[in-house]
Design a protein around this nucleic acid. Structure first.
Length: 359
DNA sequence: GGTATTTGACCATG
DNA sequence: CATGGTCAAATACC
């Protein structure tokens, strides 16, 4: 089995590398001196090839994901003990249990066929939602869910109308107090100005001082609104539970892009590709610790039953490589190279993690 | 007055 | 028919 998967990986990596090369070619074409002479059709063809190669990779991943679903559960539980799992320590020094589960594919409705990612955030303190995932959400509904103690909140991207962004999320407060389950659906196609510019507050500031301050500033009415999770659920420094649903949409092409070395890399990623990454990858990036918690986990969650051995130092390398902020709105493929260079394709490239390729 | 939230109604799905 | 997801009018807030 392992051999088979390794073979699959070779194919995957090949496809991805091809995609990368083609992207670079396209980049060169677009920004080289001969750019103006290159026909539009040529660029389109190139673009099409890129899409095809990534599509191939995604198809393989989907297949693997289905085949390995059971194994994934096992592996995921292993991950909890791995050095790549989430940081155990919460900002307040509390230790939370960590678990990664796979959401059972709902047979109920499939209107939004895109990837679904759930994050369970145990938060003892209150954080402003905008600080949390960097996206602006607007609540459009609330529903009592059978068997759930608390109602589920439905949020859509604020820029839905302005920019046609179809990203939505559902926030469900679990029975356990202060624990929320956030399900992201769809991908952000919007440009969130505040998102990119938002500084990364320090861990202590966010989790200890600011929260306290924040809480004190809340008036009573707002405190009662603590169940309005968009305002309260993004203390990723605490427990973060990520559930990945591989239920896929055929062409959510961009969402699989290297979401995760996202420590401070959101700017880079956004600049380089699209705004369409999983918010859970990019966005919970309001706290250094939070980001750092997430990223290693992304590396560690070997969704396809393979062990991933991304060392902390590796992650740090990636982080440092990707933290450099590129203010140019134009893709800088050097950074992409950096990212790729930091990936160990031959061994344990984390692409086998469903978190990387939620489709 | 503009924007966000609340909430009951409606719709789609199994 | 039960349930979950979305719509949209009413309401609240700034």
């Amino acid at each position: 089995m392992e051999c088979n998967l390794k073979l699959e990986h070779v194919g995957l990596i090949s496809d991805l590398m091809q995609g990368k090369d083609l992207t670079k070619k396209l980049h060169d074409l677009m920004f080289s001196s001969s750019s103006s002479t290159t026909s539009y059709e040529t660029k389109l063809v190139l673009l099409d090839k890129i899409l095809v190669s990534y599509d191939k990779a995604l198809t393989k991943l989907k297949w693997e994901a289905n085949m390995e679903e059971e194994e994934t559960k096992i592996t995921v539980s292993k991950m909890v003990d791995s050095p790549c799992s989430f940081t155990n320590e919460s900002p307040r020094g509390e230790v939370f249990d960590q678990e990664i589960k796979h959401k059972k594919v709902s047979k109920k409705r499939k209107t939004m066929d895109s990837w679904t990612k759930q994050m369970k955030v145990c938060s003892g303190t209150v954080l402003d939602g905008s600080l949390g995932d960097g996206y602006n959400w607007r609540k459009y509904g609330q529903k009592d869910i059978l068997g759930a103690k608390f109602p589920r909140g439905y949020y859509r991207c604020t820029h839905r109308h302005a920019q046609g962004c179809l990203a939505t999320k559902q926030v469900q407060k679990s029975d356990e107090e202060s624990t929320y389950e956030i399900t992201y659906k769809g991908i952000h196609t919007c440009i969130q100005a505040s998102h990119a510019k938002k500084p990364f507050p320090s861990k202590s500031k966010i989790c200890m001082e600011e929260n306290k301050h924040h809480n004190h500033q809340k008036n009573k009415a707002q405190e009662e609104k603590i169940e309005q999770p968009h305002e309260t659920t993004f203390n990723f420094g605490s427990e973060v539970e990520v559930k990945i649903d591989l239920e896929t949409k055929e062409d959510i092409f961009p969402s699989f892009f290297f979401p995760s070395p996202s420590i401070g890399s959101e700017t880079m990623i956004e600049n380089h590709f699209t705004e369409t990454f999983s918010p859970a990858f990019l966005s919970p990036s309001t706290s250094e610790s939070n980001i750092f918690c997430l990223s290693p986990c992304n590396f560690g969650s070997s969704g396809l039953g393979l062990s991933v051995q991304t060392s902390e130092s590796d992650i740090t390398d990636i982080v440092s490589a990707t933290t450099s902020v590129n203010n140019s709105p134009i893709a800088n493929l050097d950074d992409l190279d950096l990212f790729f260079d930091n990936m160990d394709f031959d061994t344990d490239f984390p692409i086998n993690s469903p978190e990387y390729f939620t489709l």
